[in-house]
Simulated scan of single mutants.
Amino acid sequence: MDIDPSASAAEQYAYRLRLYRERAELTQDDVGRECIISGKMIGHFENGRRIPTLDVSKGLDRLFNLDRYFEELHPHVVREVTLPMGFAEYIEYEQQAASLKVYEPQFVPGLLQSETYARALLSAANRGDRLERGLAVRMGRQDILQRDEPPFIVVLIKEAALREPVGGVDVMREQLAHLLEMMERPNISIQVIPAGRPVYLSSGFTLLGFVEGLGIGYADAAGGYGHLIQAPQQVHELAIRFEQIRGEALSWSESEKRIRAFLEEM
């Protein structure tokens, strides 16, 4: 996309990043090493296809010796993609997590969505630039899966979420195939909760674990207006609930067979 720094905070961010990098005579790989991400990701930031995190923004300020320029621009970029502030904060924690436990009753979780599936979901309420920026955030979250030491992820997903033909049959076939590919990774476990099992929570939640420090939770809500859960007792209660739900799910191998069967039925 053509970058116009006067059009939005996101495009100003992209334009300035390229400008400061080229002035410093640094490659995208050089900047990536300083920010502990790939040079390819720096390229995505510069062409507006990904939204940088707050930690990356602080790293850019340090690298270019700027007085919190990118750090202060970051919340304006987040607001443009209409991310609720609670979720924006959650994304920052997600980027640092060593483990994630996800329960999702309605849709394939964002970290495991194919781009066409994500676009179909987001297009229901977004158009034009707003859609593209929202998609950039959604797909950008998946960068943690490409880390040298990616987080360990356990996903519990209700069968109904895998039968809902989001975007049509072709999109859903691609999404199911993508899930099967993700299941081949040693750090990702997906378990299906069959229809009829006594799991009646209407909204999903996520538990984040860290190498150091206490874990936190995030509970979904309508329209994306969820909230962070940091009180140790509440996080502990969510962890117990997760294990109770997991007890109703199929095993990894049975889940793989069930997803493959859904794919073959389409």
Rank of each mutant, 00 (worst) to 15 (best):
Y13M: 10
V102H: 02
P165G: 09
I259P: 00
A261C: 13
T27D: 02
G39N: 05
R173Q: 05
V199Q: 07
S253G: 04
Q96L: 07
Y225A: 06
R141T: 01
E22T: 11
I229G: 05
R185H: 14
P84F: 05
E46K: 01
M139Y: 01
A239M: 12
D143P: 08
L17V: 11
T27N: 04
A88H: 03
Y20D: 14
N187H: 15
T53E: 06
E243I: 01
A219S: 12
A88W: 00
A120V: 08
S251M: 07
P232L: 12
R23Y: 09
T116Y: 00
L19A: 14
F107V: 13
R141I: 02
E237S: 07
A10N: 08
G226R: 03
G39W: 03
A177V: 02
G204I: 07
L208G: 13
K101G: 08
Y218R: 08
W252C: 08
L26F: 05
G223F: 11
E265V: 04
I188E: 06
Y15P: 03
R141M: 01
L145F: 06
P232V: 13
A261L: 12
M183R: 03
G128L: 09
M139V: 11
R133C: 04
E132K: 15
F210Y: 15
L112I: 10
R133G: 03
G224P: 06
H178S: 06
E115C: 10
E164K: 14
E181L: 12
Q233M: 14
R163V: 00
M1E: 15
F64N: 06
A9G: 12
L238C: 14
E11S: 11
S8Q: 10
I144H: 08
G204S: 11
E92A: 11
Y20S: 03
K40E: 15
V166T: 09
E25G: 12
I153W: 11
Q95M: 14
V154A: 07
P52T: 00
A7S: 15
A239Y: 09
G209C: 13
E80K: 13
A261H: 14
A231R: 15
